[in-house]
Amino acid sequence: MTVVLLVVSIAFTLAMLVQILLPFSVSREEQLSFELLDEELRQIEILVNRKVALVQTLRDLEYDWETDKISEKDYQRFKRSCERQAVAIMRRLDAIHGGRDWQNDIDRAIDERVASNLFVSEESPSPELGESADDHDGTDDALVCANCATPLEDDDLFCGKCGTPVASAEDQDLPDERPPLSDFDPLTNTSSPSEITG
C-alpha cells in the first residue's frame, strides 16, 4: 500500500515540477498567452464577492431589526446604504457581462425617445395622425430587409430570404437586452428608425 502511495506521490511531484517550468520553456507566443490577464473575470469575482457579502449583511440587518437589535432609524439607514451599494455593484456587473454596456444604450435611447416624444407632440397633435401620415407616405425603408435588402410585406415578422427579424432593422443599434424598449410606446411607428434609436 505504501509503495503504491509512494509511486503516486512521486509521479504527482514530477508532474507538478514540469508545470513550474512550463510557462518559461514554451515558445514566445505561448508564453504571451499565459500573460493574457482576464481582467474582466477578476473584476467579476471581486464584485460577486461584494454582492454576496452585501446580501448577507442585508439578511442579517433584516433579522436584527425583526428582533429589535437595531433601531428603525439605523435599520433604514443601513438598508439604504447596502441597497445603494448593491445596485452599484449590479450595474457594474451588468456592464462587464459581455462588455455590452447596455445600460448606457438604454439611457441614451430613453433620452432620445423622450426628445422625439416632445417633438412629435409639438409637430403632430395625435400619434394616430402621425402613424397614418407615415403609412400614407409609404416610406420604403421599413419594407426592406436590413440585412439583405429583400423587399418585405407589411405584416412580415422575418425576412423570407435570410431570416433576419424585421424589428432588427429598426433597432439594430440597440443591445440584445431590449425588453424595456420593445413595447415602449406606440410612437415607435410614428418616427423614422434613426430618430428612435439614434
Binding site: 507538478m16 515540477l17 512550463l22 510557462p23 499565459f34 500573460e35 493574457l36
Partner: peptide, 14 residues
C-alpha cells in the same frame, strides 16, 4: 505576471 503566478501555484503543489 500570469506566468509567474502559474509557476508559483505549481511550486506549492510540488
Amino acid at each position: 505576471s500570469r506566468r509567474f503566478l502559474h509557476a508559483a501555484r505549481f511550486a506549492t503543489y510540488t
